[in-house]
């Protein structure tokens, strides 16, 4: 029982990170129909930039804010320099472009920083909190709390603000959105910036627990994608549920089955979801028109 609770704690913590990565996928996918394989790199950048800004003498909070801003700027640049010029290209091309971007960012990071593993201190110390025989790190609370705040904030943004509604309208029907005067180009820029910032925040929150190095992005992107698919591509609620479910599945697999193959869970989930319910939990089905 204690063990189970322990696995649930760690599952929810990683799950929250997957949910944030999945949310990043969802935002960009909704605005532009692009699946951004460089999403994991945003998380990596969030962690790495914070580490080096902090080492350079900046207070941790300021370093984190700087990391989020810089990463958001990189997200916007990615859209402007690589995605927009290829508008209308076939899916294969877009896949190659975003994978190319992820390799480029990884290559640049190892040149500018280094190839070592890094961490910075947890926000509220490293003394575990005891809960019913299991323990939880204060940083885990920061991660889950942070994720919940982001999801709540975004929900308010999409339902209460004009800009948020414009994003939803663009996701629904780009041409119709243009016709009613929405600047869909600006929406795309906003989506990439927002998505990168969310990724970076996830990186800032999780680094004290899992550490960061230039190559952690690929695995995170793939798991975030698995989570997004599990929940139903393009649905923020699905991203949250999918992320948490994947995190729990992974933690339970590691605990009860095999820690070596815990990373396989994400891909088995992807394949299972695709074969059994291609629309995910919250997705809608569509009919092809001739």
């Amino acid at each position: 029982m204690d063990a189970l609770l322990q696995f649930i704690f760690s599952g929810v913590t990683v799950g929250a990170v997957y949910a944030l990565v999945a949310l990043g996928f969802t935002i960009i996918y909704n605005a532009s129909d692009v699946v951004n394989f460089a999403q994991g790199e945003f998380v990596m950048l969030g962690g790495m930039i914070t580490v080096f800004a902090h080492q350079a003498g900046l207070p941790l909070a300021l370093a984190a804010v700087l990391a989020i801003i810089v990463t958001a700027a990189i997200g916007v640049a990615l859209n402007k320099l690589a995605i927009e010029p290829a508008r209308g290209a076939p899916v294969v091309s877009v896949i190659i472009i975003t994978i190319g971007a992820s390799i480029l960012i990884r290559g640049a990071t190892q040149l500018i920083f280094d190839k070592q593993l890094h961490r910075f201190p947890a926000f509220s110390g490293d003394d575990p909190i005891r809960v019913m025989g299991a323990t939880i790190l204060p940083q885990s609370l920061w991660v889950t709390g942070g994720a919940l705040v982001v999801f709540a904030g975004l929900w308010l943004f999409f339902t209460r603000t004009l800009t948020g509604k414009a994003v939803l309208a663009t996701a629904n029907n780009r041409i119709a959105a243009q016709l009613v005067g929405i600047n869909t180009g600006a929406i795309m820029t906003l989506s990439f910036g927002l998505s990168a910032a969310i990724g970076a925040l996830a990186g800032v929150l999780i680094t004290p627990i899992t550490l960061v190095s230039y190559d952690v992005g690929v695995a995170l992107a793939l798991k975030g994608f698995a989570a997004a698919m599990l929940g139903g591509m393009g649905n923020p609620k699905g991203a949250l549920v999918g992320g948490l479910m994947l995190g729990l599945l992974e933690a339970l697999t590691a605990g009860y089955l095999s820690s070596q193959y815990k990373d396989a869970v994400a891909f088995i989930v992807i394949l299972a979801v695709l074969f059994v319910m291609p629309q995910g939990i919250f997705g809608k089905s569509s009919t092809e028109r001739v």
């Binding site: 320099l81 690589a82 010029p85 290829a86 290209a89 091309s93 877009v94 190659i96 472009i97 994978i99 190319g100 971007a101 992820s102 390799i103 480029l104 960012i105 990884r106 290559g107 640049a108 190892q110 040149l111």
Partner: peptide
């Protein structure tokens, strides 16, 4: 050698565009 990933990534993006 350190530039290999950088170059590969850039080539992928530029060719596709």
């Amino acid at each position: 050698a350190e530039y290999e990933q950088l170059v590969l990534g850039a080539v992928m993006i530029l060719v596709m565009i």
